[in-house]
Design a protein around this nucleic acid. Structure first.
Lengths: 334, 334
DNA sequence: ATGAAAGCGCTAACAA
DNA sequence: TTGTTAGCGCTTTCAT
């Protein structure tokens, strides 16, 4: 038979409510009493019944993570971080893949709210930028945290200074003597694409270099779009000597296309990415990129959400550090 | 205020218990009565309260999907399929990344069981092959379904005929005139690695070709291991004219390494993979591979689990079809 | 085929 | 600081 809160109460010689107080870290329990209860819980290996708690307290102890891009390493990392935070606080996490483009997007999320009653959401890009969804969540009164949202104000979550990271990446290329530096833009629905582009432009401007639209090509974060973009760039009469792709997959595509054009990386052209996903270490040459603490971002965002759920302070938007990873795909201009 | 079962009962002019019967598809409700109740539910947009159901019925309506490899497309696909099935039956799904190697692996799963009380598990490779876990689940009485397990007997789930798929893939290479066909083995902990190797050997034997150990190299399903394996293979005096890698990531690595060695694919060497993951369409040349209905496998496995949970029959091990996808990375031997 | 009563394990509101 | 009582919304058991 399973151990119930009542059994713990009997064993500890207190009332059920006192055990409940200890369980929920409430105040108004004296040290010794708390100790007694905790000891009894441990001795009996007591595990609270989630559904009973949930029914009585009208909270689900559930956090739902919403994502759109179903197979990106980056999102899997974030998921893991969110899970870390939930585990720490005995919350459960559910994930929900969604198509942000689909017409019944908000409806689906609403069905999820009605059915599972999550206490809060963690939103990942690009769902962080969906105005109707955000409005709906506010209307329903369901709190949420965002990972890398475009808007930082009035939102809790975690982010890195993406424009600054992009500036440092371009700065690295400049320091190697590159002057014709191309950029492959990411998926237009992602805020990160705009930021990375902005950082690229800033860095050029700061170095007194002109912005050449011919050197800036659109992609969509996929390997294939990197290949396509690079084919365009490498066909230019005045080829770039360096390519900054807005993520690693596209950078890998650029390196692939360089091979097609008989260009050696980094001898003939330097290539760099963003995100430090596994592919950056698997390809050859290994990729110079920006390390983003994705898992930690998921964890911190979730922790902020949980803090706000439990009324412990407000919950904040937390800035995390990034790191430039210099590897073998970038070299001095020849 | 939210609509409760009692409200529906009042609106339909029946007792709460009758509504409950309709909700749970129980018998002993006459057609007209059922209709009335269903109409009331729909009109009021009634959604049962998960925790209340769970508390009263001692079931969680929760399926937990366990996985080890945290960032593979294949597993994300399976996850999505499991989610499809759970949605269809108003179950929720939680995912749990685990390290099968870690010493407290079973302990962690047990903590999950105690805390969340899932009604069942869906296991994905290689966790399908963990004897201690399987023993523990049986002891705890928690049912599970397996996707692509090595053992098909006495287990419910879904699989494809992997040896046959590998045989067809090698058959394709043979039909193009290849005779020196290499194989890059997958991760040793995965049952699929053994099956695909077996299919490779069978096909060679059936064609009357000798098995040459020098042409069989170990990998671990990663891009990098494909690169490493190919470097070995392409350094042989008597190079293979075709390489069958046990998954797409490794095949992409092989193509990459071919470039390093100045070999054009498919002109100088044919390469093929397995799984038909997105990368197979993103690289150039596009990859000949085996399409495996991963999402459907997840869905079917979960459906079998749910069927057995609800006592509707036994739950079976279902075989699903695969398909050889011939693309541009394989060509007649030159 | 349908209904009434009891209770799942916990917490909220109130009392002491 | 601690305990008592009543219920959360549903399903169970047992009637009818």
């Amino acid at each position: 038979m399973r151990v119930r809160l009542e059994d713990v109460a009997k064993a500890a010689g207190v009332s059920p409510k006192t055990v409940s107080r200890v369980l929920n870290n409430e105040e108004n329990v004296r040290g010794p009493t708390r100790e007694k209860v905790l000891a009894a819980m441990a001795a009996m290996d007591y595990r609270p019944h989630l559904s009973a708690r949930s029914l009585a307290s009208n909270r689900s102890y559930l956090v739902a993570t919403l994502y759109d891009n179903p197979s990106s390493n980056y999102l899997t990392e974030i998921q893991t971080g969110v899970l870390d935070a939930c585990d720490e606080h005995h919350y459960s996490m559910m994930v929900r893949p969604l198509l942000a483009e689909s017409p019944d997007f908000v409806e689906r999320v609403d069905a999820l709210i009605l059915h599972h009653r999550p206490d809060g959401f963690v939103l990942t890009p690009p769902i962080t930028e969906h105005p109707q969804l955000l409005a709906h969540l506010k209307q329903r009164g369901v709190p949420y945290a965002s990972v890398s949202p475009v808007q930082h104000e009035a939102v809790i979550g975690a982010f890195i200074d993406e424009p600054q990271a992009a500036r440092e990446m371009v700065g690295h290329l400049l320091s190697l003597g590159h002057r014709r530096i191309a950029h492959v833009i990411g998926h237009p629905a992602h805020g990160a694409s705009g930021w990375r582009l902005a950082g690229y432009r800033d860095a050029l401007a700061a170095a007194g270099l002109p912005y050449d639209p011919a050197l800036v090509v659109e992609g969509d974060f996929s390997f294939g779009s990197g290949v396509a973009a690079a084919r365009t760039l490498f066909s230019l009469t005045d080829r770039p000597t360096a390519v900054f792709a807005a993520n690693d997959d596209m950078a890998a595509g650029v390196i692939w296309a360089a091979g097609e054009h008989g260009l050696a990386v980094p001898r003939d052209v330097s290539v760099c990415g963003f995100d430090d996903t596994p592919i950056s270490r698997q390809i050859w040459p290994t990729l110079t990129t920006i390390r983003q603490p994705s898992r930690e971002m998921g964890r911190i965002a979730a922790l902020q959400l949980l803090a706000s759920l439990r009324g412990r302070g407000e919950g904040h938007m937390v800035q995390l550090p990034f790191a430039l990873q210099v590897r073998e795909s970038t070299a001095p201009v020849s």
